[in-house]
Nucleic acid binder design. Structure first.
Lengths: 233, 233
DNA sequence: ATAACACACGAACGATCGTACGTATAAACT
DNA sequence: AGTTTATACGTACGATCGTTCGTGTGTTAT
């Protein structure tokens, strides 16, 4: 399942580094050094630094689909699936302690004021993601889980909370920020509670016995298991 | 009132550039070029690049106090002052179209995973700001404008919405994101409506005749006037 | 066996980075 | 008057940036 090719190893490391420090401060030389290969050898795989950045974005998209979006598909449409996605997004951590969404939080902000092809790819991903959120809210309304409301507005707020959870977790070393994000999203959706709002029983709590962490994988979220490991750094 | 000294001009430009592209990609050479002076001449004012970064942060703090925090002090304590601050933060735009908070949104994210003195200064500012928000919520509760609730949680959500408003405005070129942020904050506070929740009449609408933009300067927000000028770029 | 190809390498390039040093000019002070 | 201080400059340094080129070394195809 892992990509054992050289290019795969490069992209995996580039993905990690970009999630921490951004795509702009990615450096061919340092990346090559960490992977114990030459600059030229690495460079040949991408043809330019911009190529490396764009391929890293492609890689990150695939990771996001694999770890966050696809697992949530197994949950019922509407609110459960939406919560499953948010839960997977916030709870999943790779070996580096990175969220599945930390890369995107970092890169979204990095290119907010820039221009060029890389920014275009980033912006496109953001638009896709916002539309995805909005669709799920709309589905929730259609299924009468939620009352009628402005789906785009709700999607905006959910994205705001997801991003802030990741951000404050990293900047303030505050693991509680994750919980706050989860709770705020659940709270906001309950504000819109419709006649068929899914019972909390349908939204299984976390394996960790925490009392507050209501939200995690709704339905079975695949292999995505919350494992609060080390603190941020 | 303006700082006409060379150092002031440098910091003003550094503040703008860092708000767009971050403090790390600030470059002595480019900055000197834009200001038509030599690298060495500019460098002498700060002694190191890190010095420039730290002084830019000091400058940005002063700007934030002057444009956002201080004007809001003239509004009554609690919810009106909180909304005045949020309104000033979202509506104020300098010559470059920058929010008063865009610099901080950018820099907060830039240093989320970094370390060192600059990160420490950024983190301290974030903590100060979050505490400020929490204090205002707590004051609102004490004044019975809001019902009892977790002030830190509410502060987290407000900060999330403020950040997302700025971010989505820039990344998606979506001016509506500002409005969405305003509305979400107001909506969230009304969720906590207490017996002395301030009437909307006490929270004057914007000078711009928009129908949705409920929130702007509460009380007189000093010289801070909303002037939606050019779009983002 | 040999040709073709993919991959990785070392070396080198021009550019730009942060930084250091010595100097010229002009204001301020003795 | 002379002297100090502050400010801005030109030049140069080592390091690192992205990129190019030629070469060697395997694997695959003919």
């Amino acid at each position: 399942m892992e990509d054992r090719t050289t290019k795969g190893r490069i992209l995996a490391r580039a993905y990690q580094l970009a999630g921490l420090y951004g795509l702009e401060s990615l450096t061919i030389g340092r990346l090559a050094g960490e992977l114990a290969m030459s600059k030229a050898g690495l460079y040949g795989h991408f043809g330019s630094k911009q190529g490396l950045q764009l391929e890293t974005i492609r890689y990150a998209r695939a990771q996001f689909l694999r770890d966050v979006v696809t697992p949530a598909e197994s949950a019922p449409d509407g609110v459960p699936r939406l919560l499953a996605m948010c839960g997977a997004l916030l709870s999943y951590r790779g070996e580096t302690g990175l969220h599945g969404g930390d890369f995107w939080v970092t890169v979204f902000h990095e290119y907010a004021a820039r221009s060029g092809p890389v920014r275009a790819a980033v912006e496109a991903t953001m638009r896709w993601w916002m539309q995805r959120l909005e669709e799920l809210v709309t589905a929730g309304i259609a299924l009468r889980q939620l009352i009628q409301d402005d789906a785009a507005q709700v999607a905006f707020e959910i994205q705001a909370l997801l991003g802030a959870a990741s951000h404050q977790y990293w900047l303030l070393h505050d693991l509680e920020a994750i919980t706050r994000g989860e709770m705020a999203i659940l709270h906001r959706l309950e504000t819109l509670r419709g006649p068929r709002f899914p019972a909390l029983a349908e939204l299984p709590g976390p394996a960790t016995g925490g009392s507050d962490r209501l939200l995690h994988a709704a339905g079975e979220a695949g292999s995505v298991s919350p494992q609060p490991t080390e603190g941020p750094r």
